Each structure stands twice: as C-alpha cells, then as structure tokens.
Amino acid sequence: MADQERDIEVHDYRQSAIIGEDIPNDPSKYREETAAEIAAPVSFGRRRGYDDLRERAEGGSGTGFAALALSIVSLFVMPILFGAVGIVLGFIARRKGAEGLGAWAIGIGAVSIIIGIFVLPFF
C-alpha cells in the first residue's frame, strides 16, 4: 500500500506578495471535486409539461365544441339564451385548455346576442 501512495507537494500560496502568484497553473494542484456543480440534474419522472398540456386540451375540446355549436345555433334560434350559454361554456372550455374553441364560442355568442338585441327587433 505504501508504494501506491503518491508524493504530492502541498504549497501554501496564501503568503505570496505578488498578485496572481498564489494561483497555481497546474490543474492537478487543485483539490476540489466539482462534479456535483457541473453535472446537470437528472429527472427520472415523466415529462410533465407536454403531457399535462395534451391532457388539458383534450379535456376541454368536448366542452369547446359544445360551446361553439350552441353559439352557432344561437345565430338562428333564441340568440339571447343560446348565446349566453355558448359564452359561459366557452369560458369553461378556455379554462380546461381548448383556448381556440372557447374563444370562437365566446365571440360568436357575443355577436349573436348583439344581433338579437339590436338588429332583429327591426325585422
């Protein structure tokens, strides 16, 4: 075991008078372990970002299509009632992840209510 030991010089660099002289040029003279600071953390769990967004969008798509259908139907039949229900379901669909369907349902429902209140009474 004694022949496996290395003869390592240990210098005390704290006593130098010249600036920069206390920094060794040989990297083997540094006695630090830096693997923990350099290595990236390893994640063994599932990827949460992509899967959660996909599940969230799939959960709101049914509600989004129902909201869009009610908003379109409200253009022709009972615009105040179906338009309001389409807007409410549109907000629910947006919260569940179907942002595009919900936004279209809200917009068409609002247009249907405006047309039903201000334009249809004159016909």
Results as ranks from 00 to 15, higher is better:
M1H: 12
M1R: 10
A2D: 10
D3T: 14
D3E: 12
E5M: 13
E5T: 13
E5Q: 13
R6H: 14
R6S: 14
I8W: 03
I8H: 06
I8T: 13
V10C: 06
H11N: 11
H11A: 11
H11D: 09
D12W: 05
Q15A: 10
S16K: 10
A17T: 14
I19N: 02
E21L: 13
E21R: 14
P24Y: 06
N25Q: 12
D26H: 01
S28W: 00
K29S: 12
K29L: 12
Y30D: 07
Y30Q: 08
E33C: 10
E33Y: 11
T34I: 07
A35D: 11
A36Q: 08
A40F: 09
S43T: 14
F44A: 13
F44T: 15
G45V: 09
G45A: 03
R47L: 13
R47C: 10
R47Q: 14
R47I: 14
R48A: 13
G49S: 15
G49N: 14
Y50T: 14
Y50P: 05
D51V: 15
L53H: 12
L53F: 14
R54V: 11
R54Q: 01
R54A: 06
R56L: 11
E58A: 15
G60H: 06
G60D: 04
S61L: 08
S61W: 05
G62R: 00
G64H: 00
F65L: 12
F65K: 01
A66H: 03
A66T: 09
A66K: 05
A69L: 06
L70D: 05
L70Y: 07
S71R: 08
I72M: 09
V73D: 03
V73L: 07
S74H: 07
S74V: 06
S74W: 08
L75D: 00
L75K: 04
F76V: 15
V77E: 01
V77C: 00
V77F: 05
M78K: 10
M78F: 15
P79D: 06
P79F: 04
I80K: 09
I80D: 08
I80C: 05
F82M: 12
F82V: 13
G83D: 03
A84R: 07
V85I: 15
G86C: 08
G90D: 07
G90H: 03
G90Y: 02
A93M: 06
R94F: 03
R94M: 12
R95H: 08
G97Q: 01
A98M: 04
A98V: 07
E99M: 01
E99F: 08
G100Y: 00
G100E: 05
G102R: 06
A103G: 01
A103K: 02
W104E: 09
A105E: 01
A105V: 04
A105I: 04
I106K: 06
I106C: 02
G107P: 07
G107L: 15
I108D: 00
I108E: 01
A110G: 13
A110P: 04
S112T: 10
I113A: 02
I114V: 15
I114N: 04
G116N: 07
I117R: 03
I117C: 05
I117S: 09
I117V: 15
I117Y: 09
F118Q: 11
V119W: 06
V119S: 05
P121Y: 06
P121I: 11
F123M: 12
